[in-house]
Amino acid sequence: MLTSLKLPSRLGTLAFAVAASLFGMTAQATDITGAGSSFVYPVISKWSAAYAEKTGNHINYQSIGSGGGIAQIKAGTVDFGASDMPLKAEDLAKFGLGQFPDVIGGIVPAFNVSGVAAGSLVLDGPTLADIYLGKITMWNDPAIVKLNPSVHLPSSKIFVVHRSDGSGTTFNFTDYLSKVSTDWKSKVGEGTAVQWPTGIGGKGNEGVSAYIKQIPNSLGYVEYAYAVQNKLGYAKMKNAAGTVVEPTIASFQAAANTADWKNAKDFNLLMTNAPGADAWPITATSWVIMYKTPKNAANTKVAFDFFKYAYEQGQDAARALDYVPLPASLVQQIEAYWSSEYKQ
C-alpha cells in the first residue's frame, strides 16, 4: 500500500519538474528558423551551436538549397532565407525583402596530373573557359604551356569534371567564366546548372573531389574547404589585375575588400573577377534574405542579433571551416544597411 502510493507521487513530481523546465525554456528562449543555401550550412550550424550556448536561443537552419530558401522566405514560412544568388532589386521591392552577405568562400580549380605538384599550375580565366568549352583538350596545349613555362605538362587529354547538381558553386564559377570569355557567355551562360559542352558531372563537392582524385589528368572546381580537406592539387589563377594569386583566406578577403560594394544596391554584386591586385578571381558569398517589415518582430530581433554575433565573434569558427569572415568595412556597411532599410 505504501509503495503504491509512493510511486505515483514520485511520478507526479517528475512530471511537474519536466513540465516546469519545458515551460521555463520556452519562456526565455526563442527558436528562429532559416532555410536555403547548403553552402553556408556548416558555418551556420557551428555559429548557431555557439550562439545557443551563449543566449539560449536556437537557430534551426534547413539546408534545402538556395531556390528552396527563396521560395520559403517569399511564402513567409521562415524567419530568414539564405541564397547563393542575390535577388534582383525589383524582386526584393515586390516582396518587401532586404538582403545582405553572410560569409565568404573561395572556389578553386583542382587537378590531378601526375608529376605536377599542387599549387605549381597557373591558369587564367580565358584558358579555363576554353577548357570547359572543350576547345582546349590537351594538357600540353600552347595556351596552358604559355602560362606554365617551367612545368612539364603531359600530352594527355584533359578530363573535365563539373557539378551535376544545381549549386551556388556552379553559379559563381559560370558567372566568372561569362565575365572573362564572351564565347562562354554566348554559348553557355551562367546559372546554378548549365548545359556543359563537355565533361562528367559529380554530385556535390564531395562527388567532384572523388572524381578528380580517381581520374588521372582530370580538372574540376570545388569549394576551397574541399580542396584543402581532400588534399587536392589546386591551381593558381591569374586575376583581373594580371597578378598570379594563390587561393588563400587573404586573397579571398582581398576580393571582398576590393569589390565595389558601395555602389551595389542591396549588396547585389558577385565578387567574381574582382579588380584588386591580390584578389582571388573566383570568390563567392551567399546572402541572407529577410523581410524589411518583420512578420514576427521578436524572432527577427533575435535573427539580427545572431548575425551580429556571427560577424563579430564567429570569425574563428568560420576560419576553422575554411570560410572567410567578412572584412570589417563590409560589416560596417551591412550594419548601416540594417539601420537604414530594416524596421527593427
Binding site: I64, G67, I70, S164, G166, A193
Partner: peptide, 18 residues
C-alpha cells in the same frame, strides 16, 4: 561514356531548380 538517367537527373537538380 558518361550518361544520365531520369531519376538521377531529378535527384541532382531538383534542389536548386525553379
Amino acid at each position: 561514356m558518361p550518361g544520365t538517367s531520369i531519376s538521377s537527373s531529378i535527384a541532382n537538380e531538383f534542389n536548386e531548380a525553379v
